Amino acid sequence: MPDFSAIRGVLFDKDGTLVDFNRTWFPVVMALAREARSGDEDEARALVERGGYDWTEQRFRSGSAVAAGTNADIVDLFHPELAGEEREAKIAAFNAITTQEGARRAVAINGLAAAIRQLSSGGMLLGIATNDSEAGARATATALGLGDQFHSIIGYDSVAQPKPWPDQLHLFAQRTGLAPSAIAMVGDNNHDLDMAHAAGAGLAIGVLSGNSTRAELSNRAHVIVDSVADLPALFGRKG
């Protein structure tokens, strides 16, 4: 059994962990695909499928470009013809759109607010590490009424290399003064858990509220729970 008593900080992935990934992001990604294909609905649907959407299951697949990638990755998929300054401008445009729309459409995981407040009041230092932009993560946390609960919010554009590289967790450790071994990383995709292992985190916790199954997470997670709502009991913070 992992040593939960050694954990002093919890770093959360955002999409699929704090917010319902598919309900929040499908309409945004679909709108971006329509724009990329000049309104051609069939081509837009095909592009979203290439981004990882399973039209039968009506969800994005675990580890897909949309589920696990950054806005830069999605721009490269949706607009492969762009390079240099045009590519950078499109990434900036995607960042602006996803910041606004991600916050406006954010659907919180059931029990999120209570869980976050219980962990925080119990003395845990909390953070967000996402492959969304930092501005997007801040806007979503604010929209959910939880912006003041997070010690640090870290986007893909806050570090040299985003998940699955260790940079985001190491930055959280630096900002909080915690050793990586005192930090638990919580996420719904293996790139979250891969970052935890690469950074030397104390725990890699998988959640089933996003795009991955228990089987997909089992090889990389120390612990798997249904959602963040289960975390206060796991850490003995019942507030």
Rank of each mutant, 00 (worst) to 15 (best):
R138N: 03
R138L: 09
A143Y: 07
A143V: 04
L144A: 05
L146F: 06
G147N: 10
Q149E: 15
Q149N: 10
F150M: 05
H151G: 02
I154W: 06
Y156C: 15
Y156N: 10
D157Y: 11
V159D: 12
V159P: 12
V159T: 13
A160W: 01
A160I: 09
P164R: 06
P164T: 06
W165Q: 14
D167E: 13
L171Q: 14
A173Y: 09
R175G: 02
G177A: 13
L178P: 05
A179W: 00
A179Q: 14
P180S: 08
S181V: 12
I183V: 14
I183A: 01
A184H: 03
G187K: 03
N189F: 02
N190Y: 01
D194M: 13
A198G: 12
A199N: 05
G202T: 08
I205P: 01
I205G: 02
G206L: 01
V207K: 02
L208Q: 11
G210T: 11
S212I: 06
S212M: 08
T213C: 12
R214A: 15
A215N: 10
L217D: 03
N219Y: 06
N219K: 12
H222E: 09
H222Q: 09
V223D: 00
V223Y: 06
I224R: 01
V225G: 01
D226H: 13
D226M: 07
D226I: 04
S227L: 10
V228S: 07
